[in-house]
Computed example of a mutant assay.
Amino acid sequence: MNDVLERLRVESDGSSEYARLLAADADELAASLSSPGQPLWARELAAYRLGLARDPRAFEPLVLLLNHRDPARCETAARALAVLGDPRTARAAAALATNTLRTAYALHAVRLLTALRAPESAPALIKTLERLLSPHDPYWRVALACVEGLAALADVRARDVLVRAQSHPRLAVAATAGLGRLAAGHPDA
């Protein structure tokens, strides 16, 4: 949490608005999310604090931040969404992870799906990984997060895609480990 707050404090450039949002109550934070002219760092701070407080008003702003091009904002949103506990989170993360036009920004959505362990998690990770198995795909880090996530979930439906991932040089070790976890957890895998 301190790393997020420090990054946002630096982005605020010493603004008094930063201190105000840091001390604001939930209603003030929610109001700042809909106030026109708020800088991105202020919206992120408000959404992050509301998410950590499990306030449902944080859901939509956090999903937007999860889909941001800045990885630090995506990571902040994923952290807060994991705490928020909104039942819509897994569906939103799955939609972002599987969106072929947003693959470059899918890393934290993939990691969030793993952390959530929701019914949508394994199918979304499998679908995302299947399309990233080309040896020259530039999004191998997203593919690796999918492999690691599927290993952590130990869902037998991932077996075939993990076997295929073993032939990918950057994914082979993690895919083999994932298959080991499947075999250990499911003797018939």
Rank of each mutant, 00 (worst) to 15 (best):
100 T>Y: 05
16 S>A: 15
107 L>P: 02
39 P>F: 01
48 Y>K: 11
97 A>T: 03
70 D>Y: 07
100 T>H: 14
54 R>Y: 12
91 R>A: 14
50 L>E: 12
85 G>D: 06
102 R>G: 10
19 A>F: 05
52 L>W: 09
62 L>N: 04
98 T>V: 09
83 V>C: 12
16 S>W: 08
107 L>F: 10
80 A>Y: 05
90 A>P: 02
52 L>I: 11
54 R>A: 12
56 P>A: 14
71 P>I: 04
100 T>V: 10
79 R>Q: 10
27 D>I: 00
91 R>G: 13
59 F>L: 15
98 T>L: 10
55 D>R: 07
88 R>A: 08
48 Y>R: 09
93 A>S: 01
93 A>Q: 02
38 Q>A: 03
56 P>L: 04
28 E>T: 15
63 V>R: 01
104 A>P: 04
103 T>I: 13
42 A>I: 09
49 R>S: 04
58 A>F: 03
85 G>E: 12
15 S>Y: 01
34 S>C: 02
25 D>K: 14
44 E>W: 10
45 L>R: 11
27 D>W: 02
54 R>M: 13
90 A>T: 00
74 C>L: 13
79 R>P: 02
51 G>A: 07
97 A>E: 03
100 T>F: 10
58 A>L: 11
90 A>M: 07
87 P>H: 06
97 A>C: 03
105 Y>F: 14
29 L>M: 06
19 A>R: 11
84 L>V: 14
60 E>Y: 00
52 L>A: 08
46 A>I: 11
101 L>M: 12
84 L>T: 00
50 L>F: 14
72 A>E: 15
53 A>W: 05
89 T>V: 14
40 L>Y: 05
95 A>E: 14
74 C>F: 00
38 Q>L: 04
99 N>T: 08
98 T>K: 03
57 R>A: 06
32 S>K: 02
41 W>L: 07
49 R>Q: 13
105 Y>E: 15
89 T>C: 11
94 A>V: 08
109 A>Y: 06
24 A>M: 05
36 P>A: 00
87 P>R: 09
50 L>K: 11
54 R>I: 08
27 D>S: 12
71 P>C: 09
78 A>G: 06
57 R>I: 01
65 L>E: 06
18 Y>S: 11
57 R>Q: 00
81 L>W: 00
31 A>S: 13
99 N>L: 08
39 P>M: 00
31 A>R: 13
35 S>E: 15
39 P>G: 01
26 A>V: 06
73 R>H: 08
80 A>N: 02
23 A>Q: 15
97 A>R: 01
45 L>K: 08
105 Y>T: 13
88 R>K: 12
70 D>M: 05
55 D>H: 01
102 R>A: 14
63 V>T: 03
100 T>W: 10
30 A>H: 10
69 R>E: 11
89 T>P: 04
79 R>E: 15
35 S>Y: 01
103 T>F: 04
78 A>R: 06
61 P>S: 04
103 T>E: 12
97 A>I: 04
27 D>E: 13
77 A>S: 09
38 Q>S: 11
65 L>P: 02
35 S>H: 02
61 P>E: 04
69 R>T: 11
82 A>T: 09
40 L>H: 13
76 T>M: 15
37 G>H: 00
52 L>M: 15
38 Q>K: 14
92 A>V: 02
101 L>R: 15
85 G>K: 08
41 W>N: 07
91 R>I: 00
108 H>Y: 08
66 L>H: 00
41 W>I: 11
33 L>E: 05
66 L>D: 06
57 R>D: 03
41 W>F: 07
28 E>I: 03
